[in-house]
Simulated scan of single mutants.
Amino acid sequence: MEISENNLKTLIHKITLLKEEIQKVIVGQDLIIEEMLVALLAGGHCLLEGVPGLAKTLMVRTMSQALDLSFRRIQFTPDLMPTDIIGTEILEEDHVTGKRFFKFNKGPLFANIILADEINRTPPKTQSALLEAMQEFEVTYGGHTYPLDRPFFILATQNPIEQAGTYPLPEAQLDRFLLFIRIGYPTAAEETKILSSTTGTLKNKVQPIIGAEEIKQLQALTREVSISEDLVVYVTELIRATRPDTSPVAYVKEWVRWGAGPRAGQALILTAKARALIHGRYAVVMEDLHTMAFPVLRHRILMNFKADAEQVSADMVAEELLKTISRPKINI
Rank of each mutant, 00 (worst) to 15 (best):
N105K: 14
N105V: 11
K106L: 12
G107S: 08
L109D: 12
F110E: 10
I113T: 10
I113F: 12
I113C: 03
I114D: 03
A116K: 07
A116S: 07
E118T: 04
R121Q: 10
T122R: 03
P123D: 03
K125G: 10
K125E: 09
K125Y: 10
Q127V: 00
S128E: 02
S128W: 01
A129L: 05
A129D: 09
A129S: 15
L130V: 06
E132A: 00
E132S: 00
A133F: 10
M134P: 01
M134E: 01
Q135L: 08
F137E: 05
E138G: 02
E138P: 00
V139L: 12
T140V: 08
Y141A: 14
Y141T: 13
G142V: 05
G143S: 07
H144Q: 14
T145W: 06
T145L: 03
P147A: 03
P147N: 00
D149H: 13
D149E: 15
P151E: 04
F152W: 05
L155A: 15
L155T: 08
T157S: 08
T157I: 13
T157H: 00
Q158T: 01
Q158K: 04
N159E: 01
I161A: 09
I161L: 09
Q163C: 05
A164Q: 11
G165F: 02
T166V: 06
Y167N: 09
L169G: 04
A172P: 05
A172R: 01
A172I: 04
D175G: 01
R176D: 00
F177S: 11
L178G: 00
F180Q: 14
F180N: 15
F180R: 13
I181C: 01
I181W: 00
I181N: 08
I183S: 03
I183H: 03
G184S: 09
P186Y: 02
T187M: 13
A188F: 15
A188H: 13
A189K: 15
E190M: 13
T192E: 14
T192Q: 12
I194P: 05
L195Q: 12
S196H: 13
S196L: 15
S196Q: 15
S197F: 09
T198I: 11
T199H: 15
T199L: 13
T199P: 05
G200E: 10
G200S: 11
L202R: 12
K203V: 12
N204K: 14
N204D: 13
N204S: 14
K205G: 11
V206P: 07
Q207K: 15
G211H: 13
G211L: 12
G211S: 08
A212Q: 12
E213R: 14
E214S: 05
I215H: 00
